[in-house]
Nucleic acid binder design. Structure first.
Lengths: 228, 228
DNA sequence: AGAATAGTGTCTCTCAGACAGTATCTT
DNA sequence: AAGATACTGTCTGAGAGACACTATTCT
């Protein structure tokens, strides 16, 4: 019997999980959805779940998105697979990390529906280190290597902003160019020039004007756009 | 006992493997290292191996690189994790795919040392589909989902060419700008303008002139550069 | 001398950043 | 009318592509 086949049956196998970095923008600040971990003291964790033997990775992500974050159908992309032998003290767990984006309202609904969820603001230090700040102002202690996963998700998102329409996933159906620019600025942590931002977005054809305008504002209403 | 803990012990666990897309440039064409699979008929596969329970993913990659491809220390980066339940007919195997780059000479040495290895040229069809062509001119039949893994590796490499010095990994210690340009052109499948290419490479500081010149050429010798 | 390639100078076009200006809405 | 914001026109500088030119080596 060739050794390759025997490896399938003989060797002890690790558990495989997925973890989800669910990001949104609220109050001009990037936020992440965290779950309370009662078994780990006052630490917080990214929503996650084990990959069952008959499920694909994508199906597992969708299940976690539905059951733990109550956000089926959000934008998701695979991020990186973390497999250090000691990353989870409970045993050997390899985690296929994903990041997901959703409008703030949808995440707020999810947080209201479950007392174990919270939205933590991401504060970027001058040296680039990221701190997740809980609503009470305290810094969240993250379980396992979830801090590293979070940092990598933010980095990936920043890189994708330049050449994709990924920022649109953070906004509701109809939005103004100012909202989109504020979302970009929140992710990049730096201000952007308005005229250049407008031209770039419109020239690329990622969005389409609707002819409708925002209401309720104190000043001149801006036009509403949608994905196009 | 909370359900999270029980998942670690109760559930049936998948096998986890790594697969390696080992790329190089030879004769102005991108090539990939393939292994013969006697148990799968006349099909070819990417070098790979199972992640042992106490090994990290990186250690597994290094082991495969050393034992199967005989190329320790090559440039490697994680690519994507493939986890469709039916991707391997022998059982449930989740594969963390990586891609690696090495100079052609080093890969040719590895191929000479092992009769189960070959270098297949990657021919890109007008529609973008990639065919691995064996030295005898026949198209290689790839095992499992290795065709999809290969395609994704090429796509990632193309994207990285623009903003990183990743092309240098494909060349020997000393190289000319023409060699570097030919490597880029082989990966992109399109010709590049010489002056623009020179300026970009030199301005970015990725490489450093050595003052030495190539020898044995039929015409004017070009200066040799190295990483810097 | 001629051929082939190495390497450079210059023009243009595109695009991002910056600034200032005009337009339109609310109070 | 005043004030605030939406939206636009224009200048400038950086960088890529195209082209032509000079430089150097071998036959």
């Amino acid at each position: 019997m060739p050794p390759k086949i025997s490896s399938l049956t003989d060797h002890e196998r690790p558990s495989v999980a997925i973890d989800l970095v669910l990001l949104t923008v609220r109050d001009r600040t990037l936020h992440v959805l965290l779950m309370r971990r009662p078994d780990q003291g006052e630490t917080w964790a990214l929503p996650g779940g084990f990959v069952r033997i008959a499920d694909s990775i994508e199906a597992t992500v969708e299940r976690v998105l539905r059951d733990k974050a109550r956000l089926p159908g959000a934008f998701v992309e695979q991020l990186y697979t973390f497999g250090a032998p000691d990353r989870d003290p409970r045993g050997r767990v390899i985690s296929v990390a994903h990041y997901a984006l959703a409008p703030a309202e949808r995440l707020e609904d999810a947080v209201c529906a479950s007392p174990d969820l919270t939205l933590a603001a991401l504060v970027v230090a001058p040296d680039g280190a990221i701190t997740a700040t809980l609503p009470d102002g305290a810094a969240a202690t993250l379980a396992f290597d979830h801090g590293a996963i979070l940092a990598q998700a933010v980095q990936r998102l920043r890189g994708k902003l330049d050449y994709t329409a990924v920022g649109l996933e953070l906004l509701p159906e109809l939005f103004t160019l100012r909202q989109l620019q504020e979302a970009h600025e929140a992710i990049l942590g730096a201000p952007l020039a308005k005229p250049a931002f407008r031209r770039k977005m419109l020239d690329r054809g990622f969005l389409r004007p609707t002819g409708q305008f925002e209401t309720g504002g104190a000043y001149r209403p801006a036009e509403l756009y949608t994905r196009g």
